[in-house]
Nucleic acid binder design. Structure first.
Length: 157
DNA sequence: GCCAACGTTGGC
DNA sequence: GCCAACGTTGGC
């Protein structure tokens, strides 16, 4: 089993939305590296840290699971979609999605600010890398366990 | 709203 | 294949 962090802007799709719908096709990923993580790295049952980005405060808010292996993202073939890609052929889809299933909310927000204060313990945590903009990031088992321990402790004042 | 970081595009 | 221009992300 692998661990991941996936970003979402809560104004677009929040952990509340995921809890309500239960499962969401993660469409619209149009970055090759993120696609490759989904295609090559994700399997049914993988665990996901659900991260709220571009909001105040940004941070990890919940946990989700991956429902199954990546499949073609239908929005790439829809001319009406913001994610339409006229260069992608149905017989050779360029873009993939995975289905993300709600697991639970965190007991408390693990804010980006707080995560930064644990940068040393987290080691090379991709979210904290300078200039990182990827919406799908790998997380190690050690980082996962550390973050879950953080969740169970009291946060900063 | 600003802007640093960085991916993509397209002219050459 | 280089690289300048441009677009997007996302924290601040």
């Amino acid at each position: 089993m692998n661990f991941w962090l996936m970003k979402s802007e809560p104004e677009e799709f929040s952990i509340d939305d995921l809890e309500r719908v239960g499962s969401e096709p993660w469409n619209g990923v149009r970055n090759y590296q993120a696609r490759n993580y989904m295609r090559d790295g994700m399997k049914r049952g993988d665990r996901v840290l659900f991260y709220h980005s571009n909001c105040q405060p940004p941070g990890i808010v919940g946990i989700a699971r991956i429902a199954g292996k990546a499949r073609p993202d239908p929005t790439q073939f829809d001319p009406e979609s913001d994610y339409y890609d006229p260069g992608s052929k149905p017989e050779d889809p360029r873009w993939l999605l995975v289905d993300v299933v709600f697991d639970r909310r965190l007991r408390r927000l693990l804010s980006l600010d707080e995560l930064k204060t644990h940068a040393e313990a987290l080691g090379d945590f991709p979210l904290l890398r300078r200039g990182n903009r990827l919406s799908v990031l790998p997380v190690t088992a050690e980082q996962w366990n550390y973050l879950i321990k953080m969740e169970k402790q009291h946060g900063p004042a």
